[in-house]
């Protein structure tokens, strides 16, 4: 009886989260195309230089992610919360990998699958509409997992990573990229002190759970992952959203009423501005964590001795070259 009740609660939670998150991401893709870069990456870019364009920052981020995951042609990738497929297509088109993305947004999955068909990549890439708690793939089917800008919608990171781990081969790599809160703010939330702004942000994105960095790392370790590398990319996200906001304002005439109501457009203006302030004032942080599935007692395959292969060096322009 208790198990049935728990399952029912979980089903309700999954339904709630899927509907809530979809309310944000099921807005027309043309609206998001009105402020995102050409890859439609709705997450932090990576700036080799403060003057990088949004397009360059998108390419840099994808390259950096690929380098951290040590992508190879034979890789099979799972992208949890794949959005409009920016990383899926980057991995398939630049490295020849096989890739599966999951999203709760029907609009996003339809977009990814239609682009895959249009580009003749149906046998290489697809998006499934499924909640992370319900995903079901063969054991050790993937050797790389990535989740970019999606953990913010996930209530229980331990459940997410424990659910993901069996689908990953032993010694497979996982890259987790997402926003966190400083511990002081998170501690207040855990004590039941909610901020009006925090609640509004959650409503804007349908549903949101911003954890602290150590909670994220704890969930990874407890789920059988060894943390290999961490990079704080908060400043990169501030620069990214500054460019989104500029583009949103530039495209106002094209977007308002043609694609979304003016109130929706203006709500996005405020939330983007709010995120810029949040990053600037350390209310919100962004991190990339690279880890691998390994158990205590397992032989440790050799890793590079330095971070040289997982960094992008600063400099002018785009770093988007694959060495």
């Amino acid at each position: 009886m208790k198990a049935e009740s728990l399952n029912s609660d979980l089903r309700d939670l999954i339904d709630f989260q899927a509907k809530a998150v979809s309310s944000h991401y099921d807005l027309p893709p043309k609206f998001f195309a009105g402020f995102l870069g050409p890859r439609m990456a709705y997450s932090c870019g990576y700036f080799a230089d403060e003057d990088n364009t949004l397009e360059e920052a998108e390419e840099n981020k994808l390259l950096l992610t690929a380098k951290k995951l040590d992508l190879k042609k034979e890789d099979t990738i799972l992208d949890i919360g794949c959005g409009w497929g920016s990383f899926l297509f980057y991995a398939v088109e630049n490295f020849g990998c096989q890739a599966v993305g999951i999203t709760v947004s029907k609009e996003q999955a339809a977009f990814v699958n239609s682009v895959a068909e249009a580009r003749g990549l149906k046998d290489k890439v697809r998006a499934d509409v499924v909640h992370v708690y319900n995903m079901d793939y063969p054991r050790e089917f993937f050797n790389k997992i990535v989740t970019i800008g999606a953990i913010e919608h996930m209530d229980d990171l331990h459940r997410v990573f424990s659910k993901s781990a069996p689908f990953l081969k032993e010694d497979g790599l996982m890259l987790v990229h997402g926003m966190t809160k400083p511990w002081s703010a998170r501690e207040e939330e855990l004590q039941g002190i909610s901020s009006e702004v925090g609640e509004m942000v959650k409503e804007h994105f349908g549903v949101g759970y911003w954890k602290s960095l150590w909670e994220l790392m704890e969930a990874l370790e407890k789920s059988g992952f060894e943390i290999l590398d961490h990079e704080n990319i908060t400043r990169h996200y501030q620069l990214t959203v500054e460019r989104w906001l500029e583009r949103l304002q530039e495209n106002e005439a094209m977007l308002v009423d043609n694609i979304v109501p003016e109130e929706t457009y203006r709500e996005f203006l405020v939330f983007m501005a709010g995120y810029i302030v949040g990053f600037e004032t350390s209310h919100t942080l962004c991190n990339q964590i690279l880890c691998r599935k390994i158990s205590c007692g397992d032989l440790r395959p050799a890793l590079p001795l330095t971070r040289e292969n997982i960094v992008l060096h600063s400099g002018k322009g785009c770093l988007c070259k694959k060495d």
């Binding site: 906001l245 003016e262 109130e263 203006r266 709500e267 203006l269 405020v270 983007m272 501005a273 709010g274 810029i276 302030v277 600037e280």
Partner: peptide
């Protein structure tokens, strides 16, 4: 702001501060 009863011009993030 959404209903345009408040308007903002210039650097929007600064207004939020």
């Amino acid at each position: 702001f959404k209903k345009k009863r408040i308007q903002a011009s210039g650097h929007l993030p600064t207004i939020l501060k």
